[in-house]
């Protein structure tokens, strides 16, 4: 009855698995980029920012409009040479816009609730997520948008396997951004303030850390990373819809939990592991691959709730 039993995968070879691992790394890089937003916010505020997936969606849309305005619309079929700095500007613009949105969400929806129950904050987050999804449908239209083409997708051979060039871009950009973020948090003063807040917000305040500003910065950074994910995905899978953030957000959150919430390297690792797990399970059954994320989530929570790289510390009673 279940397709799992009747579909015999034809000739599963080591190469096939390797190829799926590579696919998974590309997929996981995007999860990682979005997962850092969840992990940082959760680290500081103990809040699941449900609206983070929608910030990723906005990131894609924020780059769509200028990109369209630059004139690289797929409808025309022409592919003018796009200078690299314009693509860079597209990323930066979308990151800045998303950072602003992230701070705005924090200021308007979450800050008033800083001292109320965590449940109230969680529900507000769900509300913000619903609001952005539905407002997105009204503003952008429910119809999917095709993202302008910057580079022709071609497959690049890498030894026994191959990967599309856009996927390689995703992996490389994600790696750079994640490393940059990690260094920022570990090596700079504002980064230290963030770590202090996530360790103990009250003590951090006593030590002279401007908590409000630090929290706002956390949201800005996380949202900017999500924007990068949004633009990268838009370039690789040129279809934008206002609901695209929903599943992506959930999976990225799961990646954050898997890696150990509060830890940036954890988010990177969690994203990669989840992406690879999904792809590899998909070799046998793509129908059940979708359940992998949720099963992984439940297993991690049961076996090691602190995640792969998280600090284990029981909640204070």
């Amino acid at each position: 009855m279940l397709p799992l039993l009747e579909t015999e995968a034809p000739g599963i070879t080591a190469e096939l698995i390797l190829q799926q691992v590579a696919n998974g790394v590309a997929k996981g890089s995007v999860y990682a980029l979005i997962a850092v937003g969840y992990t940082m916010v959760y680290g500081v505020l103990q809040l699941i920012n449900f609206a983070h997936g929608e910030v990723y969606m906005l990131g894609a849309y924020f780059s769509y409009y200028p990109a369209k305005w630059f004139g690289y619309v797929p409808e025309t079929g022409e592919k003018p040479k796009v200078p690299l700095y314009l693509i860079g500007a597209l990323f930066v613009g979308s990151m800045a816009a998303c950072a602003a949105v992230g701070m705005l969400i924090e200021r308007l929806a979450y800050r008033p609730l800083r001292n109320s129950s965590r449940l109230a904050a969680l529900i507000t987050a769900i509300g913000v997520s619903l609001f952005l999804q539905n407002a997105g449908q009204m503003v952008f239209g429910a119809d999917p948008k095709g993202f302008p083409v910057f580079m022709d997708q071609e497959s690049v051979p890498l030894g026994p396997i191959e990967l599309a060039n856009t996927k390689l871009v995703i992996i490389v950009v994600a790696a750079i951004m994640m490393t940059g973020l990690h260094l920022f948090v570990q090596r700079t003063k504002p980064g230290a303030a963030m770590r202090a807040c996530s360790f103990d917000m009250r003590t951090a305040r006593l030590m002279g850390v401007n908590v409000d500003r630090t929290v706002a910065m956390t949201f800005a950074l996380g949202s900017a990373m999500a924007a990068v994910g949004g633009v990268l995905v838009a370039m690789d899978q040129p279809r934008l819809t206002p609901l695209m953030g929903l599943m992506m957000g959930l999976k990225a959150f799961i990646a954050a939990v898997l890696g150990g919430i509060g830890s940036i390297p954890g988010a990177a690792l969690g994203g990669l592991v989840l992406g690879v797990a999904e792809s590899v399970v998909g070799t046998w059954s793509t129908t059940y691959a979708e359940a992998v994320a949720f099963i992984v989530l439940i297993l991690v929570l049961l076996v090691k709730p602190s995640g792969l790289l998280g600090k284990s510390g029981r909640e204070k009673v």
């Binding site: 995968a9 034809p10 000739g11 599963i12 070879t13 096939l16 190829q19 799926q20 696919n23 998974g24 590309a26 997929k27 996927k167 995905v233 690789d236 899978q237 279809r239 819809t241 609901l243 695209m244 929903l246 599943m247 999904e278 792809s279 998909g282 070799t283 793509t286 691959a289």
Partner: peptide, 15 residues
């Protein structure tokens, strides 16, 4: 709502 079909495509290519 998925927009990433790599896993499936790899399997199909293999078949």
């Amino acid at each position: 709502k998925t927009s990433e079909f790599n896993t499936q495509i790899t399997n199909i290519k293999n078949a």
